Amino acid sequence: MTRRDLVASAPLPALTGDEMQRVGALLYRWTGMIFGANKRYYIERRIGARMVRAGFEDVQGYLGFAETDGPEREALINAFTINETYFYREDHQLAALAREILPALARERRPGDLIRIWSMPCSTGEEAYSIAIWLLEHWPLVDAYNIEIVGSDLDTAAIQLARAGRYGTRALARLPKDVVDRYFEPEHGHRRKIIDDLRESVRFVPANIVDRTTLTGLGRFDVILCRNLLIYFDDESRLLAAANLFESLNPGGFVCLGHSESMARITDRFAMARLENAIVYRRP
C-alpha cells in the first residue's frame, strides 16, 4: 500500500472542542482566514491527512509539531487553501482593465514606462495568466509599455503548479477556441501547457496578504486584482489586508475586488470609482 493509499484510507480524527479551537486559532494567525466548528468535517479531513503524512496519531502532538516545523506548517496551510478558479473569471474586470484602468495609467506615462500588475491570490496561475492573455487580445498598447505581471498566493504548492502552466479542459472552458490554440500547446489527453513566452512573462511568488513581511520585497503596483479572498476573513483580518493593499499600491493605483466584496465597508482610505465595466478602488 502506498502513502497516498494510507492517507486516503486513514480514519478522520475526532477533534475535541479545544482541539478545534486550537486549529482555528493557528490557521487564523497564519492566514487570517476563519475556520470554525461549522467546517468540522473539512478540518478533520485535512488534519487527518497531514497527521498520516507526518507520522502522528495524537492531534495535540501534531499541532505542536506544525507550530515549530516550517515545512509542515507550510504543508498544513496549503491543505486548507481554496484554489477554485478558471481562465477569464469575472472577465468584466479584465475588460475594465483594458478599456479604462490601463488607458488612465498610460495617460500619465511615456511609452516604454513600467506598469506593474499584481494578481493575488493567483491560485494555480489562471488568474495571472488571464490578465496577460486578455491584454494581448484586447489592449492595443500592450507592447508600447513595459507590463510586469506578478502572481502570488499563500499556497506554495499552487505557486509551483502556476509556474508549470499546465491546465485541463475545465480551467480553459471559458476561453475562445482560437485563444486556446494561440496560447496553449496540446499535451496528453485534453491537457494543455501555456506557451513558454507567456509563461515566462508572469512571475509567481509566495505571499501572505496578512503578513507584511512577505510583501515588502514585492514593491508597489499600479493595479492589484485581489478577488474573492476577503470574504474568508473577519473584520480584523480584512482591515489588515486592506492596509497592506494600500501600502502595496502606487499613488493613483487601482484595486479590483471580487463581485461580492466592498472596500468601502472596510476602510475609507480608498476612493471608489464606478467604471463602465466594474467598481474599483484607488489610492488617492
Rank of each mutant, 00 (worst) to 15 (best):
G151T: 11
G189H: 01
N244Q: 05
H188P: 00
R116Y: 06
A173C: 12
P11V: 00
I195D: 14
D18M: 11
R3M: 15
A54Y: 12
A241P: 10
I194M: 04
R22V: 07
N208F: 04
D234G: 06
T124R: 14
I131N: 11
R53M: 15
A207K: 08
Y28H: 13
L94Q: 09
R4K: 14
G219V: 10
I133G: 10
E72M: 00
I147D: 04
P103Y: 03
D69I: 01
W118I: 12
R73I: 00
M20T: 06
D113F: 05
G125T: 04
Y88Q: 03
R191I: 07
F56P: 09
R50Q: 10
F35M: 05
L26H: 08
A278H: 01
I131M: 13
L135K: 13
I266N: 00
G48F: 12
V59G: 05
Y86K: 10
L245H: 06
L230V: 11
I34P: 00
H92L: 13
R22D: 11
G168I: 01
Q60D: 15
G70I: 08
L63G: 02
D197T: 14
P284D: 12
A241L: 05
E67G: 02
F204M: 03
G219P: 11
N228Y: 09
Y281A: 04
D69V: 02
A171N: 09
K39S: 08
L225I: 08
A8S: 05
E84T: 14
A66C: 07
L257Q: 05
G125H: 13
L225K: 12
I47E: 11
A241S: 05
N146P: 00
W134Q: 07
A241H: 03
R163K: 13
T216Q: 14
Q60R: 15
F80V: 03
G48S: 06
N78D: 07
G125I: 02
L245W: 02
Q160C: 07
Y42D: 07
L249V: 04
G258Y: 06
N277D: 10
G48H: 03
G48Q: 09
A243G: 14
V23L: 06
R40F: 05
R110P: 00
A158V: 07
A242C: 08
M272G: 06
R73D: 03
Y42E: 11
P13S: 06
R282C: 04
A37Y: 12
T214R: 03
L26V: 01
